[in-house]
């Protein structure tokens, strides 16, 4: 008996967003990364193919991070002290693009220098995060945006209390922005509206719903992402931005990934567990609609890449 498979017909779709600009497009990148464009819930190829597979970004920092897990220090080694070296290793590890996280210690000059050296070291498109303090973010990101005019960087992170300066400089210098709201569909949407109302072109916004890690509230992020995706497909223009998520950051701050001693035996082998933690957090977010996942460990990158490969060509 042939079954008729029910197919959803959606009026809306996810916007297509391209990060990075080649020399022909006014930048210096060897390649660009295009994400989004989905017209179905993730990977339902019986309804429509996945136009752009999710991209994997590796997070590096402008200065050697002192608070990262020893497992990460072990795998990245001395490169962590030099953003250019680190960027190269990340490219070798399979990154589609890079996140460069600036720190509070950076002056605007330091920030520009770090960005330039990373841009010089690899041809990958780049996302630049401020250190997460409003005034400092604005100061560093304005300098970076101007110095890298035309590169189609993603500048982050815009939040509801601090978005105007970052959006203005991104608009003026041809960059994109990452809009982060704390695990809430409405707050995500509201921030997207505020940013759009400033005149930011809609193909230059990525939304970051904030996800939490496995075991630390990830299910809320998971559901928020499913709801954002559904709303987008239903035609809500203010949720149709591709989603960027940070399972690397989330997973590696958990005790399960970070700590190797004094933990229950039932947690098993530290390194294997840490990588599972990052991988499974990332996989769950990919299943719920992530377009860019930012990771930290090369092994997780490999596994998530593999999984994405199986999902996009069924």
């Amino acid at each position: 008996m042939p079954i008729e498979i029910p197919k959803d017909k959606w009026p809306g779709s996810i916007r297509t967003v391209t990060i990075g600009a080649t020399s022909a497009e006014g930048g210096t990148r060897a390649k660009t990364v295009t994400v989004g464009g989905g017209t179905t819930m993730p990977y339902l190829h019986f309804e429509a193919p996945t136009p752009n597979k999710p991209a994997i970004a590796i997070e590096i920092k402008s200065r050697k991070p002192e608070d990262w897990s020893p497992l990460l220090a072990e795998v990245w080694g001395a490169a962590m002290a030099d953003p250019a070296q680190w960027a190269k290793k990340a490219e070798e590890a399979g990154a589609d693009l890079l996140v460069l996280a600036l720190t509070v210690e950076d002056s605007p000059e330091d920030a520009v220098k770090a960005v330039k050296s990373v841009l010089g070291a690899t041809g990958l498109p780049l996302i630049v995060w401020g250190p997460g303090q409003a005034e400092k973010d604005n100061e560093l990101l304005v300098a970076v945006a101007e110095a890298a005019k035309g590169e189609r960087l993603v500048l982050g992170i815009c939040e509801d209390k601090n978005y105007r300066t970052i959006v203005a400089t991104a608009m003026a210098n041809g960059h994109l922005v990452q809009a982060r709201a704390p695990m809430d569909v409405n707050l995500s949407k509201q921030l997207n509206i505020l940013i759009s109302d400033m005149g930011m072109p809609k193909d230059r916004i990525l939304m970051d719903p904030t996800t939490g890690a496995l075991g630390y509230g990830m299910e809320y992020g998971y559901s928020v992402m499913e709801r954002l995706r559904l709303a987008a497909l239903q035609g809500d223009a203010m949720t149709q931005f591709p989603m960027i998520v940070t399972p690397g950051f989330e997973a590696w701050k958990t005790k399960e990934a970070k700590v190797g001693e004094g933990i229950p035996e039932a947690w098993g082998d530290w390194k294997a567990r840490a990588i599972h933690w990052e991988t499974l957090t990332a996989l769950a977010l990919v299943e719920s609609g992530a377009d860019i996942v930012v990771l930290r460990h090369p092994e997780s990158v490999k596994r998530v890449k593999d999984a994405i490969g199986e999902l996009v060509v069924a």
Binding site: L214, Y220, E256, E265, W267, G268, D269, W270, H276, L280
Partner: peptide, 26 residues
């Protein structure tokens, strides 16, 4: 492998919690 079973059990627990309950932090 405990290092795999533990995260899988946590994932299962997370996704099967009632989302109608208010979102809490530890």
């Amino acid at each position: 492998a405990p290092e795999m079973i533990y995260p899988l059990l946590v994932l299962r627990e997370n996704l099967y919690t009632d989302p109608q309950k208010p979102i809490q932090v530890q």
